[in-house]
Write a protein that binds this DNA or RNA. Structure first.
Lengths: 121, 121
DNA sequence: ATTGACATTTGCCATTTGGCTAATTATAAT
DNA sequence: ATTATAATTAGCCAAATGGCAAATGTCAAT
């Protein structure tokens, strides 16, 4: 799931090696980061952000995205945020237009329903 | 300069040890990061960010990367919400676990990067 | 100046990162 | 299917990170 790029030219026209040369990071290392076997340093993160088209203020999102396989979006973990919205998340979303904000919760709903289907076997 | 904290209680009422416990990072390590003897991993950076009140970009700047500039709330979509988070959206997301909340932001960032690629050619 | 109470830095070292090269695996053509 | 070619993964290991405890530095009162 949590892949930066999919493979070949399926999702994004970027292979590991292409990204590797653009970012100045070895492709083997990128591969391990992709599948969660390694956790990039901030330096590496910054290097790969630009070729991927991430802005500076999205680095944190990228970090969060990379350093955890998207965790059970389905029946999420029982330890909830207690109805609290994470400040970082709030800040990020607040920069988006209202349309995008709404789309985000819509997408989330879709993902949850898909996840439910999948776990229903 | 860009010191996280100044020392004792001179600048900000936060000592290395206080930040250390809040962030879950050793104070000695934080100290070395501050004076540039160590370069934090993305994970460490993320840990430090929240206790400091999400000055993410500042942190990356402190760590020696990125241009040191205030977030510049703009950039991106044409019509902004003026930094406002829609109450409905906030309420929906607040019910999700922290991990999901962050994953949502991560996914959004990825979508934006893909969109950029597509429009770029 | 000395003491006491903290805050910060240093030394040491177990883990982890990240590059290089060699497998392995996928893709495209024959 | 077979082969050629490009992409991803695995093995190895030097270099860097990050924790802990000891050493050092700072400030406030005596």
């Amino acid at each position: 799931m949590g892949k930066i790029i999919k493979r070949q030219r399926v999702m994004v026209p970027l292979t590991l090696k292409e990204l590797a040369t653009k970012a100045g990071v070895s492709s083997s290392h990128l591969g391990r980061i992709e599948r969660g076997e390694r956790f990039p340093s901030a330096r590496t993160l910054v290097k790969i952000a630009k070729p991927l088209g991430f802005e500076e203020n999205e680095l944190f999102a990228l970090a969060g995205y990379l350093s955890r396989q998207i965790p059970a979006i389905a029946e999420g973990s029982p330890e909830y945020s207690g109805g609290q919205l994470d400040p970082f998340v709030a800040r990020m979303l607040a920069q988006e237009s209202l349309e995008v904000q709404r789309a985000v919760v819509g997408i989330l709903a879709v993902l949850k329903s898909i996840a439910r289907d999948m776990s229903a076997k």
